[in-house]
Design a protein around this nucleic acid. Structure first.
Lengths: 215, 215
DNA sequence: TAGATTGTTAATCGATTAACAATC
DNA sequence: TAGATTGTTAATCGATTAACAATC
């Protein structure tokens, strides 16, 4: 199946559509038009129809989109119904926060193991998931089929952890460290969550906004 | 000064340039060309020069860019040398992680207060910052000049917290909850860090990659 | 049927890439 | 000076928007 390549821009909008659809579904809305979505999300109706049509025909002319069905289709595209597996490397503050609060199930994931070097944690369970020593990374990963390694360890160890995870067969790296993980000659996907990038961009737009107000 | 509007795409690349420049500076590199940057960051030299020239002339023909000076200029643009202030609303797992681990100074920020409703925390200090009860939000914010409210509280309270912070005069919302914060008719800037969006996108690209390998 | 709204093609707009004169 | 690399203009490419025939 020679699927047409869909741009990353489109993909990154999909989770927002889902959030919006979930929200109106909670309010009891059954159908919605591209016009309504656009108005409430600040996009054009045209763009929304183009986005959806990258993947198929999800609407009915003269009717619009069935909220539940559209939600379902987009969820399918994003793989929310997959059964993917992840391990988390680094059970510090951020690791703990993700283990406790993040809804892996929502994304179609399950958390299979936690790695840390702190002997006080190794052997224990956090939120029902076993903590292994980081030295066991290869053993544990090769035993099971793990899709994603989540990096929540100190930045200076991030690179080597990523490389070990890749050698052990993960397909993706979810990087929360401030380290730029560039994997040359590899088809492993890296997705970064750089808190500082986000705050810097916010800071810029605040300055921008302030300078506009003065003129 | 009628500054030309620079696109958000360009702005979002700036923090990455800074990370790269810091990295090569650590390795002792003093000068760099757009070509070298491009090669190592996976961008074209053209794009890099265009990006920089949105803000001024930072290089010397025939020479390239002075690493320190370029870094300095970009830091200035992003406001890393500002003295901005932030408060964090919600001192749960994620709030704690940010309070303990996030480098506010790097972004030109200082954390001025922490809000929570847990009476066990109120009155205490976390990492040297006082925890106030969430009811005091307006009082504390109006007393000081607070630029940004960081939302790390449960999603169902996120919206009302955001609105209260906006009324109390913040200029930006840094939203870590899974709630979509849309502030109509307001010039307050919202920047979202949606973990689940990021993991879903990663999941999509993994599937995409796998389907490519099969063909 | 008439009205509404889709899917899709065409037009526009903006962002990226290429090219090159200016200059260190 | 000759070589290198910038800043910047022009060309290309891709993404967004507009328009409309198809259809529920």
């Amino acid at each position: 199946m020679a699927k047409i390549q869909v741009s990353a821009n489109v993909i990154r909008r999909l989770p927002r559509y889902i959030r919006y659809l979930d929200q109106i579904a909670r309010d009891g809305v059954m159908r919605v038009s591209s016009n309504e979505i656009g108005e409430q999300m600040g996009l054009t109706a045209s763009q929304i129809r183009q986005d959806f049509n990258s993947f198929g025909e999800f609407g009915k002319p003269g009717y619009g989109y069935d909220v539940t069905e559209l939600r379902q289709q987009l969820a399918e595209i994003l793989g929310m119904t997959n059964k993917r597996t992840a391990v988390i490397i680094g059970a510090g503050n951020l690791g703990h926060a993700i283990i406790h609060n993040f809804d892996f199930g929502y994304c179609g994931f399950s958390l299979e193991a936690i790695f840390d070097t702190d002997m006080k944690l190794v052997g224990q369970e956090i939120n029902g998931v076993r903590v292994c020593h980081s030295d066991e990374l290869e053993d544990v990963l090769k035993g099971r089929n793990i899709d994603v390694a989540i990096l929540t360890l100190p930045a200076h160890s991030a690179y080597s952890a990523a490389e070990r995870a890749v050698r052990a067969g993960v397909r993706g790296i979810w990087n929360f460290t401030n380290e730029e993980i560039i994997l040359h000659a590899s088809d492993v996907v890296v997705e970064n969550v750089h808190f500082s990038d986000s705050l810097l961009v916010l800071s810029y737009f605040i300055s921008d906004q302030l300078s506009k107000e003065q003129s």
